[in-house]
Amino acid sequence: MNKKLIKFTLNDKEYKVEVEPQVLLVDLIREELGLTGTKVGCGEGECGACTVIMDGKTVNSCMVLAVTVDGKKITTIEGLAKGEELHPLQKSFVEEGAVQCGFCTPGMILSSKALLDENPNPTPEEIKKGLSGNLCRCTGYAKIVKAVEKASKELNK
């Protein structure tokens, strides 16, 4: 196969990897680079469990060919905490009971982060819209919305 060399930034670290063109971004992240915080729930862009942030925007990494991330900046759930210190969103998800099974959580948190980066003071309706590409079957979303509101206050301090 004709592998392509790509260079990209993942969680503030530079990577140079050779990938076959059919490899998906999610498989590159999970299988090759071993960051399994990014989950696969449907493989078709319907559940959002594989959400990562690419150049400031959320994408479903199950629908992105790895070869196309050349030159881009990617953030996964592993890139949020600073050492032992949780990101305010991670903290608020813990405190508000916004996590049950945890499978949708990384994607939820990344969608929340992208939302707050663009809109630091979202209304509950805007939060729901921002999270509308991330399915959760456990929580009923209520505590997730609260957690995002709480983190937004914390981040605006």
Binding site: G45, K57, A114, S132, G133
Partner: peptide, 9 residues
Amino acid sequence: VGSPQIRNI
């Protein structure tokens, strides 16, 4: 269209 993630790409 779809979801934020889908609209983004």
